[in-house]
Write a protein that binds this DNA or RNA. Structure first.
Lengths: 208, 208
DNA sequence: ATCATATTGTTCTATTTTTCACAATAACAT
DNA sequence: ATGTTATTGTGAAAAATAGAACAATATGAT
């Protein structure tokens, strides 16, 4: 089993680059093309492919359509992924309206909030009371949730949805969460991302 | 010079955890407390500190306030960071309204968009025409930008703001950008984050 | 048919990152 | 004062990751 997160992230990037190349009319691709496209080395592309059991043709490179097929299968994109958003504040609402997930086979099917003012059952993506989250998640077999609640509420909300059957949480709360049982948490911390960027901008300024 | 991005990210996490501990009334902290708080090992906490030249007291742990002072200085948080958002769509607008940056000393001072319908000069965070970005960035000495435009427009927008003096871009467009000259690009790719989460949820389901 | 060439796939090497282990030592107890 | 203990700080070991190198080989040229 592959545990290298960066490796999986590269796989996603390869896939995205391949779609762009395909749209431009390319049918096959070489490891160095792909390396260029995602900003890596040709060696690493081939190494990654080898890890995933993807093979090409000596001197002939890789067929883009068959590459995409394999990658999509590895990434679990052969079936629509239904996702819920917990927290309908600025970030949560923006994610519910964001169209970028559709082309990736990811569909946000509902949002949840404790604030009655945020409830709206007739939205394209309905926003429901948090109390309904458990039954909704269970009856729809949802496994993935996006958590976009204020940090104070984050752990409690995480516990709730984990107990409801959620297996993976993309956490936007600026706070590390404890995940009980078999629930995986990936953090997207915008403050930290910006801080990080600021740090590297500062140090490169200084050393210049 | 430290080039290890994860190390800097951990530093931010330590800092955030320290603020929480401080709010709870703690005055000093030990490496294993911090490790618990951020989900790491005590060894790594001490090693990280050692890398940054942060030292504590044998048997006495670390004084939280002095730790925070040093970390904030390393992370460049001794001065307010002014940031602009390019692209006032769902994500861009949500970021402009997001309050979480303030407490980190990060202030979004303006947004920019090409769509005249999005322009609003009287907003708390004004949204201005993209044509004004260059002069605004230059005259206000902005170094950091958040890029939240559709992928088609991303490279062009990145080039524009780099040429205007931006030194670091937090890129939300689901696309790797080429950065000319001395501009650093950090990518936040939500589709890839979700894909990654789905992958790991799938593999842990299978192996269970 | 043979040769030259381009490209993969994989092994081996180098680098980076994390973890372990323990000496040094400050605080506390007796 | 002396001894005991808890905790840091760091050097060395281990693990993980990335990169280089090159043999294998399919393709196309002559």
């Amino acid at each position: 089993m592959i545990t290298n997160k960066n490796c999986i992230i590269r796989l996603s990037r390869y896939k995205n680059a391949l779609y762009r190349l395909q749209a431009l009319g390319f049918v096959k691709v070489f490891s160095d093309n792909l390396a260029d496209a995602v900003g890596g080395t040709a060696s690493q592309v081939r190494k990654d492919f080898s890890i995933f059991g993807i093979s090409g043709n000596k001197k002939g490179g890789y067929q883009i359509d068959s590459l995409l097929e394999k990658m999509n299968s590895i990434l679990g994109k052969d079936q629509l992924q239904k996702v819920v958003v917990v927290g309908a504040g600025h970030i949560g609402s923006a994610l519910m309206r964001y169209r970028g997930f559709e082309k990736e086979g990811i569909k946000i099917v509902a949002g949840f909030d404790i604030d009655p003012a945020k409830i709206n059952r007739s939205n394209p993506v309905p926003v429901l009371p948090l109390e309904e989250a458990k039954s909704f998640i269970k009856s729809n077999g949802i496994r993935i949730a996006i958590l976009a609640v204020p940090d104070i509420a984050a752990q409690q909300a995480a516990d709730l949805i984990c107990a409801s059957g959620i297996k993976g949480i993309l956490n936007f709360a600026p706070l590390g969460l404890k995940s009980g049982d078999g629930c995986i948490i990936n953090n997207v911390n915008l403050e930290i991302e910006l801080e990080n960027l600021i740090y590297f901008v500062n140090v490169t300024e200084k050393t210049k």
